[in-house]
Design a protein around this nucleic acid. Structure first.
Lengths: 210, 210
DNA sequence: GTCTATAATTCGATAGAC
DNA sequence: GTCTATCGAATTATAGAC
């Protein structure tokens, strides 16, 4: 069956994305990708030469997704409290909608650290980092204005992202350690953004009487 | 070469631990385990029947390690501030010394969620959870005594663990986004426990003037 | 561009000698 | 308990027809 060339290539990429995310680099099978794409296995090599090359394309996509989630493009007109609240809720929503990507990424960081680091570096060159820099500058500014206590902007961002992503990946396992009912668990997941914001804001806001 | 039976089995387990942690379930090779253990490949099947069985033994070990790191056995005589400070520094030290285990665990949660969940459940039955329960009870108590603001003990523990483990796994990657020198990076890693404690304690401590 | 057929290799597992 | 030899299945990759 002859179809548009772009069409097959895109179908393969989409299927590869799905399979690699579920099975990881070592567990992914070319045949499974071909089946899911609805094309012949040979076409995978025709378009991408090797499994490694397909994996690299998928990895690049997840790294972009990862970085853009940390960065997030925000309106910076409002005050810092609102900026942080939006950053957290946007991050948590993005992670919730793409949880497989982040779980895959965490796994690959450990399995292929050098490969991930290289892709990460290259992706950073291309992507627009200004959004992150602007937020970090805004945090430094808030420290100077005594709106919040003295914190390292980098560490604050890392802390926020830790609270967002770790819970998203491990909450199913961690709940095993508790007696929460299904309804309670759902409520905790639902309110995670608010919980994180409170936790963070209570930590950094400056009180008048101190 | 005939050696003590226990000796070979232990060498295999140790090698399997090393290989599975580096390569994951799908990427690990029986031959590589045999080589690293210095025994014949057939012995792996003689002692463990199949690759799956060896993997399961390794997974159990990592799950125990994971749970015991969250729990940590602490002196509970001092005040809550000291308890939390010790919990954080102990967690961070444990994670630093066994970072491969936690990275492996994060990866396996995504690749084999059901298998991990099962092992997790079984391990919880065996392990002594009292240490965690005592800490959570101590947190609730502190809330009642107005030593700290109202927090969910579960979420506080999860938040602390998130801040500890996420940074340990991803800091090499995240540093790629910054201009820190090697010395600065080392200092940040070195001071992570203090940073996390400050972040947490500032968030939950109650001020007099409020 | 797409398909069939198959080469080339790798891998988990087992049989059987010692 | 340990080793050699090998099976059989799975998997990546390619050659070549259409």
């Amino acid at each position: 069956m002859v179809t548009d060339s772009k069409e097959s290539e895109e179908k393969i990429l989409k299927a590869a994305f799905s399979v690699f995310l579920r099975k990881g680099k070592a567990g992914a099978r070319m045949q499974e990708i071909a089946d899911e794409a609805g094309v012949n296995k040979s076409l995978l090599h025709y378009y991408f030469r090797s499994k490694d090359k397909i994996y690299l394309a998928v990895l690049k996509h997840t790294v972009e997704n990862f970085i853009l989630t940390i960065v997030q493009d925000l309106e910076l007109t409002s005050d810092l409290k609102e900026i942080i609240k939006k950053l957290i809720s946007k991050q948590i929503n993005t992670i919730k909608e793409n949880s497989q990507i982040f779980q895959f990424f965490m796994g690959e960081v450990w399995m292929n650290p050098d490969e991930v680091k290289n892709v990460f570096r290259e992706t950073l060159k291309i992507l627009d980092k200004s959004a992150l820099l602007v937020i970090m500058e805004r945090i430094e500014d808030a420290v100077r204005r005594k709106e919040i206590r003295k914190v390292s902007p980098f560490q604050l961002i890392v802390n926020i992202f830790s609270l967002d992503i770790f819970f998203a990946i491990l909450s199913p396992i961690l709940f095993e350690m508790t007696d929460f009912t299904e309804a309670e668990r759902a409520a905790i997941v639902e309110n995670r953004a608010e919980e994180v914001f409170n936790f963070v804001w209570e930590s950094i806001r400056l009180r008048k009487e101190e």
